[in-house]
Structures are given as structure tokens and as C-alpha cells.
Nucleic acid binder design. Structure first.
Lengths: 341, 341
DNA sequence: ATACGGAGATTAATCGTTTAATCATTGCGT
DNA sequence: ACGCAATGATTAAACGATTAATCTCCGTAT
């Protein structure tokens, strides 16, 4: 009982016009030798019938599914919407579909998710690895988006440079003591950002780093970061490694009656959805997701074309880091001259 | 030049074991009549060779692609990660893959995105419609997740009840004047929430509604909401229709030196990522994404099974609204007795 | 002895598309 | 006229999996 498919197919168009299937295929794809008029007639008729080619049939014949996989091991990451959108856009522009797979943070599930994608016949995939998990080559070309210092990284924002931009920005505003607020010391991205920030500081400036996960392991999750105390100690700027942590810092400061930015400046990373709308709006650096996705997809597709879609390769690209852009808003300002030591 | 596919297929296994393809297929699917021992041998050998069935071949023959579509017309919505995760989880559990499509807010693009999914052979799709766009039945079963008052809605959080819970919560805290803060008056979801909140208020309480988009059209985007003034007017509670607006309200109040919650309470909707970590942490109501996704997927699959995957139907489910759950945190508290009129 | 039944396997058709190979027709140069 | 090439179309063979139909034994009942 082969299920009778209702949609028109090549053969239906063919018999209906009294020509052969091959001719119809050629006419629609513009590949073989078909006369102008006939090709035109065929196209018209196909459109009339609302013909949509069966991806299944095509995939079977050509071995190309026209689908890429997107693996998100850390889907809770709030920058995911932008990323997914950019990837989907780039893939769609190239005529590909995007199959998502989520591993909910679990490494075993990640492997399984990758396998599922392979079974579904993806020609390649884009992986945003969860914290420093090493991607063992899958059964197809893989593009990794993480950070330049991650081995096997294909392309990513230039987190170092982004850090530098922030460090430099705070330096120019006259800040001397900077507290860097990160989430997890095991993250390659966050470490690169820390390094970047430090490289942007001037002689005479000092910085310390506060890791929230470490703190919360002692004081419980959702605990105070003790920033008011830090302010008393002389810190005038808080450079968070993500807008989420920046938000946490900002609200804590405000709650404790410390004005931002007149008393202390706060900066973030990634330009997440809330950054423009909070008060004060958040100074941050944005990744150029569009370009990153573009590069990831195009080098992925190039690898697929040259080496086939069944070989497990880590895709490389000429441009492996894309500059981040500083967005100055209201949360950063000149250091209070009365408070700098 | 049919590209030679490297992976083992049924026929390779068959010849390698000296049996027929059909037998191998039967053994692996457990369908036909194959002796115990032979079936065992075949399975072993298949596993050894790392056989993965070609979805293309299977899809072509059976007409079932094993793939569902997820249409997100407003992918920038920060609740997307949770949603995508829940949908992907439910679909994976049912043995389906999830193809995403984004229409970037554009209605024309939305139609095109739906068509692309159909071309890719999805058996059905889940659509989260952008603001009140009516989903004209596509060429396959469609489950809509929006709100109960949307015609054609399959399942959604019970936004009315969620609103009621918030209204009731504020009433119990002794608030009298409530300002409801929404984004867009054209959103079904937001309107249901407004109605819900009002229904939770007690006699003697009053509420007004502030639509941010309307305000921004006059005063420019990112403008102040003028909440300090509202506080002076006697409002003691601000009920935002989304955590994003709640965050905006909260930071604006704090910036203006108004303490939350001792002077004014703030509540949100959706329990977005930042709600637990800001200071004060945000009182909100959460959607049960897991259950919603579960219901959407299972009724979608049921429709596909009974009516086939080529008929454009709006899927219905017995349970069309899933209760929301109040999460009381620090941003809401008793109304200041000296300030209630 | 013959027919029957059933288990265990194979044959072959089919899904829809692509494409190399082939065939038929016509025009054109010598 | 005859061969040759170009053009326009057809034939047929895949791709890989599924499945209805068929075939082959072999044991057993009539």
C-alpha cells in the first residue's frame, strides 16, 4: 500500500502534456536540451498545478538532502534567538533548511543529538559547543562557532577585540579600578573576553575578576554579588562578560542606591534584547551575527561541495574572527573624579 | 553520475550476508517473517557496519518524512529558547526532527517560510503566530500556539488565568491602583492577560493600561515611561504583560529612586531568563512550556495519523489552555499603607 | 500418494527525481 | 546525394527502503 500522494509530480505533468518525465525535469531545472516554447509551456503548467518537487525523491537521487543541522548544547543562552535567526537566514538564502537539535547541556545527549541529525541526512552542521566541550568530528562536515582560542573553531566573534574595546572605553572614561564579572571560569568565550578587557587597560589601572558560579556555590544561587562593598573599595566600573550578568550587576547597584553611571559604570557583552530598553540603557559590545552566520554557512557549504557530505571534517574559514562593535549607551560614563584613587 | 554513498545500505548488508534486501529490511524492522537466528545475525552485522537507514529512501517509499516544522514569526521573542527546547524535546521523543523557519515579522515572508517547509516535506507544523495574524491553512496539518481567544488556536498557556493570578496576588497584597504595562494593544495574548488581571481585582480597585508602542510612537523609542509620575499619582503596583516590560519598568523605577517593592510592586509574565537573577528578583507567572509543547505535538501527530499529512487542517486538542503558575519573588510586596488611597 | 499449510525466504514493483545514453529529425556543407 | 553535427526529445537506469506477492521447502493430515 504505497500511500497515494496527492500532489502533482513530474510524471503527472508529463503525461498531462504528452511529453516524457525527463523533459519536464529538464525544463524545470533548465539543464538538458529543451526548446524554448516547450520549456515555457511546461513551466506554466507546473505552476498551474502547483507542483512542488519532492525533496525525498531528489535527495534520494542526488544524495543531497538540502538540510543542515544546528546543534545548540546551551539553548538557554539568551543570545540564541539572534543566532538561530542569523543561521536560518544564511541557510535559507543558500537554499538549505535548518534542523535544530538541542542537548540540554548534557554531553551524552549532545552526541546523541548529533547522531540523530546525521540519520536525518543533514549535509553538514553548525555547532555552538557548550563550554569547552571538544567536538569530536561527526559523520559530516562540522562548523564550530565558539571563540578563536577554541581548537577547531571555524568562525566566531572576536571576543578578545571586543574585550579590548570595552577595556579601552572604560580607560578613556578615566576609570582606574575595574571589576570584571563573569559567570564561569571554564568558558573559553568568557576567558577570551577577560583577556581582551585587560589588554585594553592602561598602565596604572587594575582589575579583578568575580565569577558568579563560584560565588553562588558558596552563597547560594541568586545571592547578592556584594557590589556595594566593591564600590566602597574603590571600584568605579563593572565590566560584565555578558549582558545577563551586567543586568544583574546593574539592578543590584540601583537597588543599593548607587547611581549608574554617575557613581559606577556598568558594561556588558552581546547586546541582548533588553539592553536598549532598560534604564539606564546598557553600554555593550555586539557580535555581528549576520556576518558570523554567513561565514559559517558559506564555508560549511564550500567544504561540502569539495569534500562531500559524508566525511567528518572540521570546517575552516579564512576569517576566523569577526570584529565586535561597541555600543555606547547610558550605563557607562566618566569616572567620578572624587572617587578615583 | 549518481554520487556513490559511502555508508552501508540494505543491499550492502544483504550481499555481504548472502541474503536478500527484503529479508534485511524485514529483520531490522521486525515486520515480515524472518527466523530468529537470521534476524539476530542481520542486526549484529548491521550494527557492526554502523548502518543508518536513509531517511530519503524511506521517506520516498513511505511518504513520511519524519520531520515537523516550527514557524516562529517573531524569533526575537525572548521566550523562544524555552519554546524551541520544549517543542524539540517533544518532537524528538516522538521520533521526529524539527525544521525551523523564521519570517522575521514579515507576513509575506511567513507565507513563504511555510511553503518552504511544505516543500521540504514536513508532515505537519507548529506555528507561533505573530500578533493576531490569521493562519490560513497550509498544505499540511498545523498546530497553533497562541492564546485561547485566537480562532484556530490549538493549545496555549491560559493567559487569562495567568492574569487573574497576578491580579489576585496584587489584590491580596492590598494594592488599590494598578498600572498595567503592555507593549502592543493588537496582541491577542496581551489582551487576554489584561482581561485576566482585571478579573482578579477586587471591587474598589482600579487599573489603567499603558501601551509602550503607542507611547514610543510619540516620544521616540527607548523613552521614559514616566512611572515616577504614576507613583505620585497613587499607583502602587505595576503589572507588566511580559518580563521584558517588567524589567523596563523596574529599572526605570529604581533609577528614579523608587524602591521596589516597598514603595511600588512590579510583576511580569513568562519567567524569562533574567527574572530570577535581577535585584529584586521578579515576581512573575510562568507558562508550562513542557506541557504545552507536549499537547501541541501529540495532537499534531494524532491528526497526521488519522487524516494524513497532506490535508491542510487546523489541529484541535481537548485541552486548549494550560494553567500558568505564579512565582512570587522579591519584586512584589504589600502596598505601602501610607500611600493607598 | 497427494494435497495442504505454513514458515522462511526471495522477487519485483514502487515512491519521485535526476541524468547518462540513445534516438530521431533537420539543416548544412561538400 | 551523403555524411555530419546540432537540436530536441525519449529511454532507462539508478538512488535506498518498503511491501505485496510469490516461491520453495518440509512436515503432516487425509
Amino acid at each position: 500500500m504505497p500511500p497515494t500522494r496527492p500532489g502533482p509530480n513530474l510524471s503527472r505533468i508529463a503525461t498531462s502534456l504528452g511529453v516524457s518525465v525527463a523533459t519536464v525535469s529538464n525544463a524545470l531545472s533548465g539543464k538538458g536540451r529543451v526548446s524554448e516554447q516547450l520549456a515555457e509551456r511546461i513551466k506554466e503548467h507546473a505552476a498551474e498545478l502547483g507542483y512542488v518537487p519532492s525533496q525525498a525523491g531528489r535527495a534520494l537521487r542526488t544524495g543531497r538532502s538540502g538540510v543542515l543541522g544546528l546543534v545548540l548544547p546551551d539553548i538557554a543562552n539568551p543570545l540564541f534567538p539572534k543566532l538561530a535567526q542569523a543561521i536560518e537566514f544564511a541557510a535559507t538564502a543558500a537554499g538549505y533548511g535548518v534542523l535544530i537539535a538541542d542537548s540540554r547541556g548534557d554531553v551524552a545527549t549532545q552526541t546523541e543529538a548529533i547522531n540523530r541529525l546525521v540519520e536525518r541526512g543533514v549535509e553538514g552542521m553548525v555547532i555552538i559547543p557548550r563550554r569547552a566541550t571538544r567536538i569530536s568530528a561527526a559523520a559530516c562536515p562540522v562548523a564550530v562557532i565558539d571563540t578563536a582560542s577554541t581548537p577547531g573553531n571555524t568562525v566566531a566573534a572576536d571576543h578578545m577585540q571586543g574585550g579590548w574595546v570595552i577595556g579601552n572605553h572604560l580607560a578613556e572614561l578615566g576609570h582606574r579600578r575595574i571589576l570584571i564579572i563573569g559567570n564561569n571560569p571554564g568558558s573559553n568565550v568568557q576567558n577570551d573576553r577577560v583577556g581582551g578587557i585587560r589588554s585594553g587597560l592602561r598602565p596604572g589601572m587594575s582589575s579583578a575578576t568575580l565569577w558568579i558560579e563560584t560565588l553562588e556555590r558558596q552563597s547560594g544561587s541568586g545571592c547578592s554579588l556584594g557590589l556595594a562593598e566593591k564600590v566602597r573599595e574603590g571600584y568605579t566600573a563593572f565590566a560584565a562578560l555578558s549582558d545577563l550578568q551586567a543586568l544583574r550587576a546593574l539592578t543590584e547597584l540601583q537597588r543599593d542606591g548607587i547611581d549608574v553611571p554617575s557613581v559606577a559604570s556598568v558594561t556588558g557583552f552581546d547586546d541582548l534584547i533588553w539592553s536598549p530598553v532598560i534604564t539606564p540603557s546598557l553600554t555593550t559590545v555586539a557580535m555581528d551575527m549576520h556576518t558570523i552566520a554567513e561565514i559559517a554557512i558559506s564555508s560549511l557549504l564550500q567544504t561540502i561541495q569539495t569534500r562531500g557530505s559524508r566525511e567528518g571534517v572540521l570546517v575552516e574559514s579564512e576569517t576566523d574572527r569577526v570584529p565586535m562593535q561597541l555600543i555606547v549607551r547610558q550605563s557607562s560614563g566618566p569616572a567620578d573624579p572624587t572617587r578615583i584613587s
